[in-house]
Design a protein around this nucleic acid. Structure first.
Lengths: 205, 205
DNA sequence: GTCTATAGTGTGATAGAC
DNA sequence: GTCTATCACACTATAGAC
């Protein structure tokens, strides 16, 4: 192994330390509280050193968002193998909301910051495609209420889930109906109601 | 009219000018860009003068939120007299989303800022109650898909609408399915789809 | 009531020594 | 590569003259 490889390895290690510290600050105090000085303090470097590894604060934010999207994507993949489309959709939806509530400030950074979704790094599209697929299958199975184009249905369901998370974050989770309840209600509304999980009543026509 | 009344009138007038300028700044540049200096510049006062009428920047934000909620409430009231509950619900939903897209930065301040919904001034409850009422009537009419408690259904629909607005604001409205389409899709999902067959309120497709 | 002036603190980013 | 020192700003809020 030459000296160059070692160099780039060390560079990578510092980059990781910066990102790790940044993520901790964001999760604890929110993105607005993420300053170059605070990051530098956390890893015992000077603020100037950060600029050798990242172009700017916005660049660090970009990297954090990319990490978050990768994690979310892998969570979605875990449920992609469920055979029954409605059940698959439900699990994905629950996982999405769970992710948002578990990492509230990262979720904020990814989806609620002005710079968030405008960013090409914000590739939610694979996850959306997985949901759209499920809607395709639902329609093929002749489920009622899936008349809309699958891509649009998926986007609409996403908007619904996003609303549940965003509202919960804004309210501080200490009032209103629990997010879990809202998710189940929404899923009942979207996935037709004759579903796997022990359904009660059936649509009249 | 005594001198005291004139005094308080003038005070009120200055207060209004401050709020008016503040609202303009928020709508143009967002709440984050609202600074005491900018407000003072806009009304040709010194920054210090603002503190004679408002306790702090947060206090101004509170007043702006209260104004926004009042406006939203009055918009909801305009549709409260529609007899048919499903049609009423649909109009309210459309009006809500329209409000959010028309005043994006005010909407942000009201519902997406950490301080927003935690505030007692954020009395959305009357509007939510109106939607819950519609769900009560829907259920009484024996519509399918209204099995959930009306209050929870209203909250879930609200979350859905909020998600549509929030997403549109985050994406800058220049990509993805238009909000209007998502609203109609969501309404079809929520207001029972038995109605979708011969629906009067859903002209397109 | 309104001003000027300023305290006090935070920020992102850079220059230049080592 | 990393440091110290610093620039050039922004901000909220207050003190004291008028």
């Amino acid at each position: 192994m030459g000296i160059h490889e070692r160099r780039t390895e060390q560079r990578q290690a510092v980059r990781e330390r910066i990102l790790h510290a940044s993520r901790a600050i964001v999760e604890r105090e929110g993105f607005a509280a993420l300053s170059m000085r605070k990051i530098a303090d956390a890893i015992a470097y000077s603020p100037a050193a950060l600029y050798l590894h990242f172009e700017s604060r916005a660049d660090i934010a970009r990297a954090l968002r990319a990490e978050g999207h990768a994690q979310l994507r892998s969570i979605f993949q875990q449920h992609a193998t469920i055979a029954e489309p409605a059940a698959r959709l439900r699990e994905m939806a629950r996982a999405y909301v769970d992710f948002g509530l578990t990492h509230p400030e990262t979720y904020r950074l990814m989806f609620m910051e002005p710079s968030g979704l405008a960013d090409p790094a914000a590739t939610l599209t694979p996850a959306l495609a997985l949901m759209a697929d499920a809607f395709v299958e639902l329609r093929a199975a002749g489920r009622p209420g899936s008349g809309a184009p699958p891509a649009e249905a998926a986007e609409a369901l996403w908007a619904n889930l996003h609303g549940i998370v965003a509202l919960q974050l804004a309210r501080g989770a200490r009032q209103g109906t629990p997010a879990e309840t809202l998710v189940e209600l929404s899923l009942d509304a979207w996935c037709a109601r004759a579903q796997a999980q022990g359904d009660i009543n059936h649509p009249s026509q």
